[in-house]
Nucleic acid binder design. Structure first.
Length: 113
DNA sequence: GCCCTGACGGGAT
DNA sequence: TATCCCGCCAGGG
């Protein structure tokens, strides 16, 4: 399906599709690209995403606990939380509240490769 | 070419 | 129910 042979590019495509006010998990994105076990790679790709040309809402990607595990990758540890709250996502103690409500399943999750 | 690390996840203890 | 450990995939030293 994806003509992109780059693992990172696939991650960016999925993350870019995340609507504002919604969040997803690394595992969900990994599964969306056909690698449900590459959750680590997703987060890693996010770190590289800052160098990637284009806007990648990495702050909308959290771990399966809804915890802002990647906040340390931002210029300021609170930047990620501020961005999420700015989009309508309530974050408390670096944790996404109503995570299940704001959770968004990437397109392709249903097809599962 | 080998070893370690890394924004995770899920199963086992 | 909480904590620990192993597994996944790729890149860097």
């Amino acid at each position: 399906m994806s003509e992109n042979g780059d693992f990172f590019s696939r991650v960016y495509e999925v993350v870019k599709q995340i609507p504002a006010g919604r969040v997803t998990t690394y595992g969900a994105v990994a599964a969306a690209i056909g690698s449900p076990g590459a959750s680590r790679m997703v987060g890693w790709a996010m770190n590289k995403a800052f160098s990637h040309t284009g806007y990648v809402p990495a702050h909308r990607v959290v771990n399966r606990n809804g915890l802002l595990t990647g906040k340390h990758a931002f210029p300021n540890a609170h930047t990620m939380q501020e961005l999420l709250e700015s989009e309508g996502v309530r974050v408390k103690n670096d944790k996404v509240m109503d995570f299940q409500k704001v959770f968004w399943a990437p397109d392709g999750i249903d097809c599962f490769k």
